[in-house]
Design a protein around this nucleic acid. Structure first.
Lengths: 205, 205
DNA sequence: CTCCGTCTTGATCGATCGATCAACTGGAGG
DNA sequence: CCTCCAGTTGATCGATCGATCAAGACGGAG
């Protein structure tokens, strides 16, 4: 059985044409998970935001909210990966590149009234040991982002192991600075992170 | 055998709190908030964990779960502050002191199966813009910890502003590294943070 | 046209949520 | 002895949770 037949029009590209019901569900869920986490996000809220009905959700995601959330996290992860790629590509010097990422996040946070940051942090923290499916999706997102940063550090001349460890700390600092910024409603933690991460990267070569 | 049924702590010493039902509620709530956040923690779970009944909760906390959670966050914040104080006091050099804090957190996480870390992070992220009471308690906790770190950096000779900014990033990195460690079930992000934070502090003087 | 699989609709389900409340307990003070 | 009341108990509330399902709309194939 090689099933998987879908309308070619909707499967073709992820972007472009107006979204189908499935895509709208994923998008709406990704936004809600990013802003208020998993438990605080209700199915009703998702359906309203996506303009869909109950049955549609369970048609595309037979396992319900949990399966949809895992898919939404993967969607959000790709989105955030793009932000990192842009920030990293905007400077040759890895130190400047990392600082760019932090400043991009500071911008996104400020202009969204401290709502839009990392798409998995809130969900990941509350789901630990409660949903293997979602925890796994979160873990993969974080590893994907780490690797993006590590690659830039390697290009900058750092040895493989050094780059991997440093990339891990860079991501830690970005995530933590976002927490502090969102809670306090002030982007200075994010801007301090930009400055200090540049210092740290320079000190590591 | 029938000597004293009550702990001697009943003697009121002004503001001293007895280790009674109220204290048990706060303690149980603090633990649950730390591990699974606010929305995932149910009142029933709290009552079972604390060995209390519904009425007792609403007797001590008329505003219910939200009021109890805010109190529990303050309790947990003091607990975590003690961990930081011990880590910071264990070394004269601020760089070593900060690394100590990270390693202490790594220990606590590993020995608790990645459950016990920062007592406010999970709750803070999901509650943003949903409960001013709890968000305020989270913000105050983070500021308290920042100030503990900043004081150590000032003692190490850093100017006031420099110390404040650096303390902010130190706490960001600790929080983010805990996120990565808990999600991946691996304390290396926390240990990398220890190493890199020491490097960063040394590079800042 | 009919047939059939894909997708949508919303009423409805049982479970569980946070919260309320009247009844009760036991020790302190008169 | 009695009253008084801080503290406790658990049944019960209405609301809402995530999930289910029968019914039907829609469009392509025959």
């Amino acid at each position: 059985m090689e099933a998987t037949q879908r309308p070619a029009a909707e499967q073709a590209e992820g972007a472009g044409e107006r979204d189908g019901t499935r895509a709208r569900l994923v998008k709406a869920t990704a936004m809600l998970l990013q802003r208020q986490g998993y438990e605080a996000t209700t199915v009703k809220q998702i359906l309203k935001e996506a303009g869909a009905a109950y049955g549609s959700l369970y048609h595309f995601f037979p396992q319900g909210k949990e399966e949809l959330a895992a898919e939404a996290l993967r969607f959000g992860a790709d989105d955030f990966a793009d932000l990192l790629r842009r920030g990293l590509a905007a400077a040759d010097d890895p130190a400047d590149a990392v600082a760019n990422c932090a400043l991009s996040m500071a911008d996104a946070l400020r202009t969204s009234a401290w709502l839009d940051g990392c798409p998995v942090a809130a969900t990941a923290l509350e789901i630990i040991d409660r949903s293997p499916l979602i925890q796994r999706a979160s873990d993969e997102a974080l590893r994907q982002w780490r690797e993006l940063i590590a690659a830039k550090l390697r290009d900058g001349g750092l040895p493989r192991d050094t780059a991997a460890a440093l990339a891990c700390t860079v991501l830690s600092t970005l995530e933590g600075a976002e927490l502090l910024s969102r809670v306090s409603g002030d982007d200075s933690p994010m801007r301090f992170a930009a400055e200090h991460l540049a210092t740290l990267v320079r000190a590591s070569r």
